[in-house]
Amino acid sequence: MPRRPDTSPQTLLLFRALLADPSQWRYGYDLSRETALASGTLYPILIRLADREFLETRWEPPEQPGRPPRHVYRLTDAGADHARERLAAAAKPSASSKKAATAPTPRLLGGAR
């Protein structure tokens, strides 16, 4: 049986970082520092999420002129739902994944359990 996508510890770390403030656009470097993921791990995950439209990307105009624009990220609504669902499923390892998928509870986040 194929592994469920987006259940690796690295991906879950990233979900947690992105869900901290889902409306906030995030820099790649800051996400890397926050999750302690190397660029070679972090960016492939970002690419996969962006390909499936779980992640929005845009080029942010530089704060100071002369500096290149930076690429920034945030979860789409679907991406946020998906991330919460995956985190919830991971937090409840005994529960079947089916049950977790039918009852994604945002409140489970942030240590509410």
Binding site: Y27, G28, S32, T41, I47, H71
Partner: peptide, 25 residues
């Protein structure tokens, strides 16, 4: 995207790690 973040690295070690991952990407 990776390249534009390079200047955020502070230490040489961070810079090397960032570049190595960026090359893979």
């Amino acid at each position: 995207a990776v390249l534009r973040e390079f200047d955020e690295t502070v230490t040489t070690w961070q810079a090397l790690r960032w570049a190595a991952g960026g090359i893979r990407v």
